[in-house]
Design a protein around this nucleic acid. Structure first.
Lengths: 315, 315
DNA sequence: AGCAATTAGTTGCTTTTGGCAACTAATTGT
DNA sequence: ACAATTAGTTGCCAAAAGCAACTAATTGCT
């Protein structure tokens, strides 16, 4: 936690100075930062009262009153007596105000553009994704359900995906279950096996992506005798409980049905209760289990099986 | 690009208001924002001159001079005549200044803490990573040389490292050489092989880390007959040309010498000219080469060998 | 309905903030 | 060695911003 606070503090200082640079062009215009913020806010929200502005921008109402008077004198905005409150005014931009705002915005956009040009497309994507992440997580009305709405599903792999999946397994299982480094080696082995015997007609992998980042995964690996194994079923903790796991599992099982696998099985450990309950809901039943001392833990490895066709659709 | 600019503009407004909220407690103290920023900057960088402060914080030197005088009068900082420049002063915090800064920082930390408590550990990690990314890519002194000064070297692996290394190989070789997805599968295989025959006494891997992120790597895999193979030699493009590759290679070869390997070899392709020139500088010589149609490219795979003891130290 | 309390907005007054230019003294480049 | 540059200071001034007293409309309460 200490380290995280330090990082955030550092970022705040960094971005303060960055925003300062961005706003320099405004300081060179004949308007103050506060004036521009007022213009901007009105532009954003069509019509509002001085009170709302003062709340939103944290400006003293006396100061704000003068700013509004000045902007009004210059013909950038109009005050219309409020219909519902005789004390208040609805403030709106005039055409001139809108035009000025557009010019200022274009200038600021140009600076952003200038900066973006120095980056490669993938670096740009990184920046934008990082900003989205921060905005999403900082916004007070945040729920993981909201994040989940932006998740995209995709079948198949692009370069880097396998590595990232191994990374996720290594990091998350270490963090959550205390698995040792050896577990990641095991994951490498399973992927090696998958790729070695890869059959494009039968083997499939699906990813759940949030802003191009993998946050969920499931795969079907074909086995002899029309059997199939579910592998690498994983949902990033932030996104759990939002239906992403369910969706992935459904996708994979639907595929098994249509591809005429006779039986689907999977291996898991007893610590994965959340996943196990999803398996059971989907019709899987425990078939065998063994004690293993593995990955720095004493674990019970369980095998679950599902006979296709026998599923009692319980959704 | 248009979409990206819009996203960034939105983030800037969002974070402006966020920072405004964070800074409110400072405005309630008896110091101005500028004064606090000065204190903060001095606290961060132990000792600096007014000039450096002015550059860093974008403050007018006249204004800054007065701020420094005021803070000095209040006993928060001291001016020591610079040893190297008779015009300049080294500015440092006094104990009182440090104490004040600590109090202010504690207040701001408390706010950040309050916010972080609402997030899960992995959400916190997401925020911190996103901030790091932005900071890295935005830093105006985005010269890799400067970034490289913050790079830390480390021997051995922690959970997630192998996956991340595979990820880096997959992404970078696809981006830079156009290698197909199959290349990443090959990397998985090499890691599988490494882990399968892992011998803690002989096999080693070194990482170069920037803010805990892997940006460079090299490994030594022991082979029969006192031979060793150099593997996964990689430096993230942003950090190339900063001596990180050289340092990694030197570390690995020094290890080979002291571990009494007789011969070191490595496999590479002719497109890796930058790496090859480093190998040659280190004493490696081309031994064999074959044409391969692999990973979506027509490549010449080359083997380089170095007989230990025969090295003509050319550094 | 009537009256006290509250609220939206304005204005006068004041302090603080911060920019600019002229100045001193030390340093650098040629 | 001397012009040009640089670090830092100071005087001067305008813009920015806070505070309190004020008007006029609204709300709440009995």
């Amino acid at each position: 936690m200490e380290r995280e606070i330090k990082q955030i503090r550092s970022f705040n200082r960094f971005y303060t100075s960055h925003l300062g640079l961005l706003n320099q062009h405004i300081l060179q215009s004949s308007y103050s930062l506060a004036e521009i913020r007022v213009l901007y806010e009105i532009g954003q929200r069509h019509s509002l009262t001085a009170q709302e502005l003062s709340d939103q921008l944290n400006l003293d109402k006396g100061y704000l009153s003068r700013i509004i008077k000045l902007l009004s004198n210059r013909g950038l905005l109009t005050k219309v007596a409020s219909a519902s409150d005789g004390r208040a005014y609805d403030i709106q931009l005039t055409e001139a105000g809108r035009a000025l705002l557009d010019v200022l915005q274009a200038k600021s956009d140009e600076q952003i553009d200038q900066f973006l040009l120095q980056l490669s497309p993938s670096e740009r994507a990184m920046v934008v994704n990082a900003m989205k992440t921060i905005e999403d997580l900082f916004s007070t009305n945040y729920t993981s359900q909201l994040l989940a709405q932006q998740v995209v599903y995709q079948e198949g792999l692009k370069p880097g995906d396998i590595g990232y999946l191994i990374y996720l397994h290594g990091v998350l299982y270490a963090q959550e279950e205390g698995y040792s480094q050896a577990f990641e080696g095991y994951v490498v082995k399973t992927f090696y096996d998958f790729l070695e015997h890869y059959n494009a007609d039968k083997d499939k992998i699906w990813l759940a992506l949030y802003h191009d980042q993998i946050i969920g995964c499931i795969a079907i690996q074909s086995r002899p005798n029309d059997e199939a194994q579910v592998r690498w079923f994983l949902v990033h903790p932030v996104f759990r409980g939002t239906g992403i796991g369910k969706k992935l599992l459904e996708t994979a099982l639907a595929y098994c049905t249509e591809t005429a696998f006779r039986r689907v099985y999977l291996l898991t450990t007893d610590v994965q209760q959340k996943a196990i309950s999803m398996y059971k809901k989907a019709g899987f039943a425990l078939s065998t289990s063994i004690e293993l001392n593995q990955w720095g833990q004493l674990l019970r490895e369980e095998r679950y099986d599902l006979i296709i066709g026998e599923v009692s659709s319980s959704s």
